[in-house]
Write a protein that binds this DNA or RNA. Structure first.
Length: 357
DNA sequence: AATACGTGGAC
DNA sequence: TGTCCAAGTAT
């Protein structure tokens, strides 16, 4: 699995630190704080999500929930609008649960070590290590996509990084680097520097080895195998699904339905969804609503990480809907309240097109 | 081990 | 257009 080169490990961490302090990122909103709450929030938002996407969400979330106590005191329905559009909504649900655990079991303070932090919901090994490194200076190595790119290239680690054996090798290497570093290692700069390097000079497409501080002993550069590392994942074909969504409008309101957890969009409020137009028509009939074919809107496709969804929206306007009470997981929502409602991205797109035009 | 879980940026 | 994948975790 390892390449032939014998890369220098003794000076690795110090080199990263020096480069970070000189050329790394400095102005990100979650840097320059040791508040575990702010660090934790940023790490959760940044899971599988690009920095630029997170920025606005981070500021809005912190303004509404400035402390872990504020977050714990809120309801999940109050939290979800601040996550809507970011994706992977289990992160928000776990974040909320985690805040309550911290307030109930840890007296409102984060656990003092990465091992204990990792026991909390939504926090895995890498996120726990990042929080402990940034908040406490603990020498706990992280292993995210950036670090995987730097390490597989520098140390010549072949094999899909998501496969257990490769992953194990990466973690052991990361630990070995920290163990080989001097006792006064600046853990904040090291951790940040690794990610900065992975997202800049050691980016996936065309790595800029000429500018990289690790180039002299980097396996991939020395062997000209940058394009092979990290070993790409084997791609799995993604399926396609189809659905009909109902925009049922009664005067100034529409009918929304809260999605179950776990599951796609769990906790968000979405349009009533059916496998096909016929099922939608039957449901409308049960409410005494006729569905004319001309109510069908232009379809759209929404791409998830694991499948593509073809959505056929139907806009039904009726002020004489027979239902007295909506189902427990349904609600009539005023059009004025839509901007503050936790809507899935494609649903927001549909409703914006309909009611903001 | 393999799959579920969102959305958008980059090329 | 399609493909890859991003500061991953839970099951």
């Amino acid at each position: 699995m390892l390449g032939n080169a014998q890369p220098a490990i003794a000076a690795f961490a110090a080199t990263v630190v020096q480069w970070q302090l000189r050329a790394g990122r400095r102005g990100l909103p979650w840097q320059h704080t040791r508040d575990p709450y702010r660090i934790w929030l940023s790490e959760i938002m940044l899971q599988q999500t690009q920095v630029g996407t997170v920025m606005g969400y981070y500021e809005r979330f912190l303004a509404r929930f400035p402390t872990v106590q504020d977050l714990a005191a809120a309801t999940q329905d109050e939290v979800m609008p601040y996550w809507a559009g970011l994706g992977y909504y289990a992160r928000a649900r776990n974040l909320h649960r985690c805040a309550q655990e911290i307030c109930q079991n840890w007296n409102g303070s984060f656990p003092p070590s990465a091992d204990e932090i990792m026991q909390l919901p939504g926090i895995g090994r890498s996120t726990a290590a990042a929080i402990a490194a940034f908040a406490y200076g603990q020498r706990s190595p992280i292993m995210d996509g950036n670090v995987k790119r730097v390490f597989t290239r520098y140390f010549g680690i072949f094999g899909d990084p998501s496969v257990r054996a490769t992953e194990k090798c990466l973690w052991e290497t990361a630990q070995a680097v920290v163990d080989a570093a001097p006792p006064d290692l600046d853990m904040t700069a090291y951790t940040q520097g690794l990610m900065d390097l992975g997202s800049s000079h050691c980016a996936r497409g065309r790595p800029d080895c000429a500018a990289c501080p690790l180039a002299t002993h980097c396996y991939a550069r020395l062997e000209s195998r940058q394009a092979e590392l990290p070993t790409p994942k084997k791609k799995k074909q993604s399926g396609q699904r189809q659905c009909a969504m109902l925009i049922l409008q009664k005067e100034n309101t529409i009918l929304l339905e809260q999605r179950p957890s776990p599951g796609i969009w769990g906790g968000l409020w979405s349009l009533p969804q059916f496998d096909d137009a016929e099922s939608l028509r039957i449901a409308c009939g049960n409410m005494g609503v006729e569905v004319a074919t001309e109510r069908k809107m232009a379809g759209l496709q929404h791409v998830f990480s694991h499948f593509k969804l073809h959505i056929e929206p139907w806009h039904i306007v009726s002020d004489q809907i027979e239902t007295t009470e909506p189902r427990p997981n349904q609600a009539w929502v005023s059009l004025n309240d839509l901007p503050a409602t936790a809507l899935p991205a494609p649903v927001k797109k549909i409703l914006d097109g309909l009611f903001l035009a």
